[in-house]
Simulated assay, not measured.
Amino acid sequence: MSEHWSGPRYGKTIKVDNGIKAKSKRGDIGATWWSRRFIEVLESFGMGGRLTRGRNYARQGQVLSLSLSTSMVIALVQGSRPTPYKTRIAIKAFTTPEWQRIEHALAGKALYAAKLLAGEMPSDIETLFASLGLQLFPASSRELTMDCTCPDWEVPCKHLAAACYLLAESFDNDPFEILAWRGRSREDLLERLRTLRGTTRAVAAREEAPPLTKCLDTFWQRQTTSSLSFGDPTATVRADAVLDQLDAVPITVRSSNLVDLLRPAYLSLQPPSDASQIAD
C-alpha cells in the first residue's frame, strides 16, 4: 500500500500583518541618492535580477524585523514555512587606522557633520573617501557576506533581497547607518568628531597667540585704547556678568545654588559708575 505525505506542504508564502513594509509602492526603492547608490552597487555585482524577486516581499511586509549593528544586518523574513528565515548581510568594516583617517578628514569639514546630523549624506562624501584610498560603498561582492536559513541556494534569495531593499530605506531615514554598517556607530563617531574638533580649535588658538618668550618686553605694559576694541563706552557691565557665562554648576549649599550665593560678592566689586572716580 502506498504511503501519502499528510504533513504541511510549503510553497505558498505565509502572509503577515505586522511586518515592515517598504515605503515605496511602485518603481524603484530608495528616495535619496545614497540609498539608490547602494542598490546600484548591488546590481553591479550581478544581483539585479535576484534582487527584484525580493521587492514584492519588501512591499508586502514579509520582513518581520531588521536590525543593524556594527558591520552586520540581521533580518527575520516570513516565507512559506511557519518559522521565519534568518538572513544576515555583513560587510567588511574599516579598520581602526582607516577610521582614524576618516574621522580626521570629517572633523576638518564642519559642513559634513552638519549635513549628517540634518539627515543628509554630503553629495561629495565618496570623493572624500576616495582621497583616503577608501570606498564608502562596497567595491566588490567579496566585501559582502550574505546568508539565509532558507533552502534556496541562490544568493541573494528573495528573503535576503527583501532585507536589502529595507536596508536601503533605512539609509534614507538615517545616513549614519551607512557609516555604522562600515564599523562606527553614530554615537562613537560623533564623540570622536567633537573631540577632534575641540583639539583642532585649541591648537589653532595656541598658534594664533604669540609665545610668551616673544612678548616679555611688553607683556606687563598697560594696553592703550588704540590697541583695544571697546564697545559702547557708556554701557555699564555688571560685575556678576561673568557668572552668567558659566555652564550650570551642579553644587548647592543649604539648598541654594552656588552661583546665586556668589553673586552678591561679585556685585560688591562693582566699580563706581563715574569714570572720574577711578584713580589712574
Rank of each mutant, 00 (worst) to 15 (best):
G48I: 08
R50T: 02
R26N: 04
S67W: 07
D124G: 02
K109E: 13
T87F: 10
I20V: 05
E126L: 09
R50M: 12
G19T: 03
S35L: 12
E120Q: 14
I74Y: 00
A113T: 12
K23H: 09
D28V: 05
E43R: 15
A31G: 00
W99T: 04
L132M: 11
R50N: 12
T127E: 15
K21F: 05
K92C: 01
A31V: 09
G19N: 03
I89Y: 08
R88E: 15
L68G: 06
G61M: 10
S131H: 10
W34V: 11
G79N: 06
T52S: 02
A58Y: 00
I74K: 06
F137S: 00
L134F: 03
L42A: 14
M121G: 00
S67K: 11
Q135T: 12
E43A: 11
A139G: 13
L66S: 03
E40C: 00
A114R: 14
L42N: 03
G49A: 14
A75Q: 09
E40T: 04
T96V: 15
S24Y: 06
V73F: 07
K23G: 11
Q78L: 14
M121P: 00
S131M: 07
E98Q: 15
R55F: 00
K21E: 15
P122S: 10
A118W: 05
S67G: 01
L132H: 12
L132C: 13
A90Y: 07
M72F: 10
F94T: 05
T83L: 09
A90L: 11
A114P: 00
G30P: 04
K25G: 08
A107N: 04
T83A: 13
E98D: 12
K92A: 06
G49S: 06
V77W: 09
G133I: 14
A118T: 05
M72P: 00
F137Y: 08
G49N: 09
T127K: 03
L111A: 08
Q100E: 15
V73I: 15
